[in-house]
Each structure stands twice: as C-alpha cells, then as structure tokens.
Amino acid sequence: MTAALELDGVSVDIAGRRVVDGVSLTVAAGEVVGVVGANGCGKTTAIRGALGLIRLQTGEARLAGRPVSGLGEADRARLAGYLPQERRVGWNLPAWRVAALGAPHLPPAKARAIAMDALAEVDMTDLAERGVFDMSGGERARVLLARLLATGAPLLIADEPAAGLDPDAQLLVADLLRARAARGGAVLVTLHDLTLAARSCDRLVVMTKGGVVATGTPRQTLSREILREAFRLDGGLIETQAGLVVAAHRQ
C-alpha cells in the first residue's frame, strides 16, 4: 500500500544554508509518526518541504505516492491537513468559524456542523462562540487543532500541537491524534516532550542538524546514545505503570 507521506532524500536550503539535509521518512495509514529533535534541527522546515510550501534542493516529497510539486492546491489539501506551529490568527473570529475553515468547500451549515464536532473533540464546545483573541493561548491552540481535525484529510501533519498546553490538554491532543490513526488516518507530529512522544507515537524520527539520526519505535530511538547525540542529554527510557518516561539531565 502506498504511504500517505514519503520524503526521499529531501534537502532544503534557506538563505544559502542547508537546513534540512537528505531527510527520508514515511508515514503510513494507521500510524502516528513523531519527529523529535532540538530547536533548530530542521523539523518544521522538513514538514514545510514535505507539503510543498518551500522549494526542495534535492529529493522528492510524495503525498499518497504523488510528487507534491505536481499537485494542485485542491488535490494537496484533499491529501493532507496541516497545523503550523505559528498560532497567530489575524482577526478575532469566533472559535467555530476558525474550526469551520477546515472545510471551506462545504456549504456553510455543513461546515459549521463539522466545526462543532471538532470543537467537541478538543473539549471546546462551551467556547464555540468566543473570539480567539479573548482566549488563552492554550485554548486558541485547541481551536486551531479543531480546524485541523475538521479537514478530515487522510494525512494530518501537526507542528508542535502540544506546545504551551496544560498536561491534561497535552494528553488530549495525543489521544485525538492516536484516535485518528486508529480510524485509518496517518499522522505526522513534531513534539518536544519526549515522554509524550514515547507514549503517543508508533515510530519516532530523531533529527539533528538537519539530518535524521534514528528512525524506529520509541524504545529503539530514545536510547542513551541517541539522547546524547541528538539532545545532549544523559538519561534514558524508564518503564512505569503509566507508560514510558524519558528521564534525563543535561550533560
């Protein structure tokens, strides 16, 4: 079966500097793949390259087997939904209108119904009519996640969806993305919380300095050696009743 997303030796230069260097990864239907790595290691740029938002110097990005560079705007949106890291909203739109922007092609009543369902998923039904400027950063993040869910795309790509959220909301985000995968969706997510990544992702891609240093299950990739190389941390995975925990300290 064709993977929802394939990156094949992708490199991206920004202002003459190689920011992403020969990254290859795949995300298949039914799995949550996490991209982890220190700040500035190229996670966001790799994702933007995967979606055709930035020009690739080398390699190819494919959505459902089709090169992203050859896809029209409508086809690309049908194959992938994207939640950028940047959470600025230009105007004080009510939450449900933001969520409804996930389904711009549907008639307004249908889009609203989908938006309300998505807001219910992120536990924001009560604030559906509230303007996004009148919310906390975490609440706004959940509204934007609802918009991503409302796209209903077979591949969801979320850049730092858990950043700035309280612990309960972080686990909610992880559960929602897992639920999408369980229903046959493909999910690519970047996370900074390694414990959250270890618990919620089927596979992890560890990046450092623009390249991939490890790909595999959390147990395989969050080894002592990789933690040292990619995060400059001393530590490792601990098995607990509540799941895996990454415990580490600075070198």
Binding site: R48, L51, L53, E73, A74, R76, A77, R78, A80, G81, Y82, L83, P84, E86, R88, V89, G90, W91, L93, R97, V98, L101, P104, H105, L144, R147
Partner: peptide
C-alpha cells in the same frame, strides 16, 4: 472574499486549505 477569511490563519494554512489561494 473566502480567501481573505482563510488568510486569517496565515499563509501556510491558507496554502494548504484547498482554496485556489494563488
């Protein structure tokens, strides 16, 4: 008009919205 509303969420989100943003 519908593109203007979509742009509230930023250029990247709009570019992936499926609307003919260009």
């Amino acid at each position: 008009a519908r593109g203007l509303t979509m742009l509230s969420l930023g250029e990247d989100t709009a570019a992936l919205s499926g609307l003919p943003m260009a």
